Simulated scan of single mutants.
Amino acid sequence: MATLKTLALGVIALLGAKVVASIVLQYGDYFPPNFDSAFLVGREKSFTGIYPPAFYAHIIVGPITLLLAAYLMFSGKRKTHQKRHRQLGKLQVLLVLAVLVPSGLIMSVWAFSGPIAGVAFALQSIATGLTAALAARYAMLRKLATHQVWATRCFILLISPLLFRLASGVLIVTESESVEAYQINAWLSWTIPLFAYEVWRMRKQHAKKPRLSEQASLEAIS
């Protein structure tokens, strides 16, 4: 079981790295902006004012926060990484709250396919900022178990754009791409992973209760 879990995590990591690499490789279409490229097509009118700075800040900081999030998840329970974990955790919270969330909110106003997707992206940005802030707060309070829960939620929200890209790729390959599909993807790409995590966490907590009750009974008998 442990081998299968390690293998699955390795496959997920490689898949995530591939998606991040494909995003970074598209930067050639953004400097300067190529409005015939996949993401910028039809955005000539919206690519003015505050949108370009928000767009560039978002695409530069986004991969950095993803890499930081992956390291923080890896290093959280390793004593040899504690000092660096705290330092990079502070940097992560700063980048998320000062750059990623504000730029995401600005971009959501001009979201492709309209306000339905825009609201999804805006709420996702707010949720990301909230989970990062709460993870930092509980770390400062030394409530590490609660910190880990909020940090995991933040990690899920940070990787959800990768899931959005993967789903978009599937839609393109299967010739199912549409405005409605884009809007659904904008919501499900982050709500379903969060929901799945909460279900897993609740089941894990329920599984612990019988063990604790059994242990308490044994102690009472002894």
Score class of each variant (00 low, 15 high):
98 A>W: 09
40 L>Y: 04
75 S>N: 07
102 P>Y: 05
32 P>D: 08
49 G>T: 07
90 K>H: 14
91 L>H: 08
23 I>G: 14
77 K>H: 11
79 K>F: 10
111 A>R: 03
100 L>N: 08
91 L>D: 06
21 A>W: 12
15 L>R: 09
19 V>A: 11
24 V>L: 12
25 L>Y: 10
106 I>T: 06
68 L>D: 02
40 L>H: 02
62 G>S: 12
79 K>C: 09
86 R>L: 15
99 V>P: 07
17 A>C: 11
35 F>E: 07
62 G>P: 01
43 R>W: 10
24 V>K: 05
97 L>P: 00
21 A>S: 14
34 N>S: 12
91 L>S: 09
82 Q>R: 14
52 P>Q: 05
65 T>V: 13
42 G>R: 00
120 A>E: 00
50 I>E: 11
50 I>Q: 13
54 A>H: 01
18 K>S: 15
25 L>K: 09
47 F>N: 08
59 I>S: 00
44 E>V: 09
113 S>H: 04
113 S>K: 08
62 G>H: 08
112 F>N: 15
59 I>G: 05
48 T>M: 12
81 H>A: 13
55 F>N: 01
57 A>N: 09
87 Q>T: 14
27 Y>Q: 09
84 R>Q: 13
117 A>E: 01
89 G>D: 04
80 T>K: 11
42 G>T: 03
116 I>M: 09
54 A>T: 01
71 Y>W: 03
38 A>N: 11
55 F>C: 04
37 S>G: 05
96 V>P: 00
73 M>C: 04
62 G>F: 02
35 F>C: 02
14 L>E: 07
56 Y>P: 01
13 A>M: 07
53 P>D: 06
56 Y>H: 13
66 L>M: 09
119 V>I: 14
98 A>I: 12
101 V>P: 01
56 Y>S: 05
22 S>L: 10
60 I>Y: 06
71 Y>S: 03
63 P>E: 00
84 R>E: 12
57 A>K: 03
92 Q>S: 15
99 V>G: 11
105 L>E: 06
93 V>E: 02
55 F>E: 01
29 D>P: 06
32 P>K: 07
119 V>H: 05
87 Q>M: 14
89 G>R: 00
44 E>T: 10
51 Y>H: 06
23 I>S: 08
56 Y>L: 14
100 L>R: 06
38 A>Y: 15
53 P>T: 02
